[in-house]
Design a protein around this nucleic acid. Structure first.
Lengths: 249, 249
DNA sequence: ACCTCCAGTTGCATCGAACGCAATGAGTGT
DNA sequence: ACACTCATTGCGTTCGATGCAACTGGAGGT
């Protein structure tokens, strides 16, 4: 379609493996030295590449800026939708996507259960952090310092008998989330609902959203719900990858 | 040099401001719709752009990957990470690592208080040399001849009341940096921020990066910030050693 | 159901930008 | 001083990129 553009981008991908000199780049791209040089000049003038010395090219700082801008434009909803659907179909239960907004979790997307008994919830609804699986996941994604401060200023209404109250126990619970990679809600928010949730990461590794599977406990006891956690984590890993996250990249 | 490559990169820069549709992009690049589309196809096939829906283009995930690779390629980063973290914890303030790119400083790593990050919002940002502590350090590491030439062609926007303007005073300031081993920024770049910076040397003795500690002046007056300079210099010496630099070698 | 508007898409002929080649220049090691 | 490597430049040719205009397909209105 656009040969020289494609070749230029190919050069960038080659440079992703490390600094190279002109000959190496020309060979990798399958073009003549002089052609590679002219492409590199264009890339350099736009700061996509850099020349630490006369004989080496490497990736330049424009990439940092663009990557940062791209982060702002990320739409977790769009990236997650496919997997949410898939999860919904496989589990047959309600699947939520939530992000944190200040000290609440906000549901930004939802796939309804195919079963007859449905949870009441809607996109845009907000929920406390301390008694929901998504809330715990979102907390677990915060820097420790911030998390402590937030936990300290949260309110802890006991919405059910099992609701975790108090910063201490919540933080302990969050530590368990960090260790296990997923969070649970055993009827802490609504008496009759169990949830399991895991986190979605952006390219910086920050947890930007949480995905949960919710089941009325009349349909599935807690141990069975636990069985979905593996698939849930896997789905979250896929969504994260879609966003550009690279495990220990 | 390479028209279509340059145009393609220009499209990316336009997209940095947010998602756009085809017409907007074509107009911004000054090309025909169909031309823009063909360029975007190439960008898309290499995942440099994305199409959330049929009418919008935005930056794609290849940028994240490349940005991560670019960060890894800067080896001072790896060598400095531990010390940056330590400095951040001890001072409780923001610590930056910067390298020079042409006539700007580029922040390549950052530690926010005691928390280490992989790719952060300000990483990739660029700053002038004449009014930042890291800039003065990076200048001080250049051969005198080059430094004079660079100082002569720099622009000297007065970003605050205290900004040093003019090559003469900047060079004088750099001489002081050479004598003292560290540079300061007393609200010259941003009114409310004080910085102290020192240099990191590679095995040839060349200054390849600068480390700075930044403090909002409401938190710490300048004399107190001065107190951190010893520790900062020591940290830089360690990082330099890690890179293979040997004092009096 | 039809039309209109809008935005993306495609076929085509023309033209110039990008290409490869070969010669030149700059820097390094012997 | 010489050979060697690698980046750089000038040039003629050609192929790929371009702009145009017509087409398509969906959204929204009448």
């Amino acid at each position: 379609m656009s040969q020289s553009l494609q070749r230029g981008l190919a050069l960038l991908n080659t440079l992703a493996e490390g600094p190279r000199n002109l000959d190496q780049l020309a060979e990798a791209a399958g073009v003549h030295k002089s052609t590679a040089m002219r492409l590199l000049r264009s890339l350099e003038s736009a700061r996509f590449v850099n020349r630490p010395d006369a004989h080496h090219y490497r990736l330049g700082s424009a990439l940092f800026e663009l990557a940062n801008c791209a982060l702002d434009g990320i739409d977790v909803r769009a990236a997650a939708r496919g997997k949410l659907r898939e999860l919904g179909e496989r589990t047959g239960h309600t699947v939520h996507l939530a992000v944190r907004e200040e000290d609440r979790a906000v549901y930004v997307d939802k796939v309804d259960s195919s079963r007859s008994v449905r949870m009441y919830s809607r996109v845009g609804a907000r929920a406390p952090l301390h008694c929901t699986a998504v809330g715990k996941v979102l907390l677990s994604g915060m820097p420790e310092q911030d998390r402590r401060e937030l936990a300290a200023r949260l309110e802890y209404p006991a919405l059910t008998e099992r609701t975790v109250t108090g910063a201490e126990s919540l933080l302990a619970e969050v530590d368990r989330v960090l260790a296990e990679g997923c969070a649970f809600d055993r009827g802490e928010h609504e008496d009759f609902v169990h949830c399991v949730a895991a986190g979605v990461r952006d390219p910086r590794g920050a947890v930007v959203a949480a995905v949960s599977v919710s089941v009325p406990k009349v349909l599935l006891d807690f141990d069975e719900l636990l069985g979905w956690s593996g698939e849930l984590k896997e789905a979250c890993a896929h969504i994260s990858a879609e966003l550009g996250w690279q495990p220990h990249g």
